[in-house]
Amino acid sequence: MSVLATLALDIGWGSTLAIKTILVLAIIPFGALVLGYTFLLKMMSHMQSRLGPMDPGGFHGWFQLVGDGLKFLQKEDIMPAEADRRVFAMAPAVIVMSTFLIFLVIPAGPRTIVEDLDVGVFYALAVSSLSVIGVLMAGWASSNKFALLGALRAAGQLIAYELPLLLAVVGVVIQAGTMSLQGIVTAQQDGSIFGITAIGNPFIFTQFIGFALFLVAAQAELTQPPFDMPVAESELISGYMVEYSGFRFLFFFIGEFGTAFAFAALAATLFLGGWAIPGVHGATAELLGPIVLFVKLMAIAFLMFWVRFTYPRLREDQLQSLAWKVLIPIGLINIVATGILKVAVG
């Protein structure tokens, strides 16, 4: 991580890579814990007029999720007798890995980024869809009909929503003129709205349709209500996760909330200007960047989870027709409009 270079540490290439990997790996459970605590335990509880856990750790039960994680680690590792053992064991790791890969390209400061790829946006969206392989593996290997149904639903759903997700982002890419996430952030930081540079030019204003599309499609990618059919507790019990317990279930949990964290970060980067504060550059931006990004992503995550805990679930066919008949046409129109305006306005 470049922050290390600013600290003038003289370490080799291999060590840098190892440190980067560990840091990114640490972000996933951190993100899962933060989102899980803030939204799952506290926001949902309060929406439902209950308190949620209040005692563990002293302050509003903040330690509850850590305790839950430790509890999962102690549990017996149960595997169905008929399961395809190797695939069954690998599936959670695949899901967490896809989350891990997204974090590699998300910038948290001018130089705080693991790898600033030129095709950063599309890389992020591409690796995020890897998780569907993990879901399919889990559903198939469990040798459970509910799990299989859930996995097939997930596959159909993720394919249908990958496209709107991409289309939503294309508008941003056209406006920024780059696919690099760092470039997109800079474009928003240095941009102006009708000559006013005070808040830069967060693409949420010009690309509001894209933002809305992105949130809807991300909700489907994350299999959260109203698109949680692959999990669907009341229908498929827990879908592809039904046979998992112990630390493998913990992996799924971390993957679920870690991915939500990643997508919120992605949306914050693409539409809210990421780590950037207009006019702030250099070392200050480096220090403030992660905090700014965190605040923005929590705002986005709040939206996501607010919807998650409020809305009922759509049916699988309704979801497909929503994706193909509504979201994709809107996304295409948005791209055309953005392109025309870009050429016309400059």
Partner: peptide
């Protein structure tokens, strides 16, 4: 009924 179609929150209101 909300819970059956996937909305978690109304179920708790019902119990409350």
């Amino acid at each position: 009924m909300g819970l059956q179609v996937g909305a978690l929150t109304p179920a708790f209101w019902g119990f409350r």
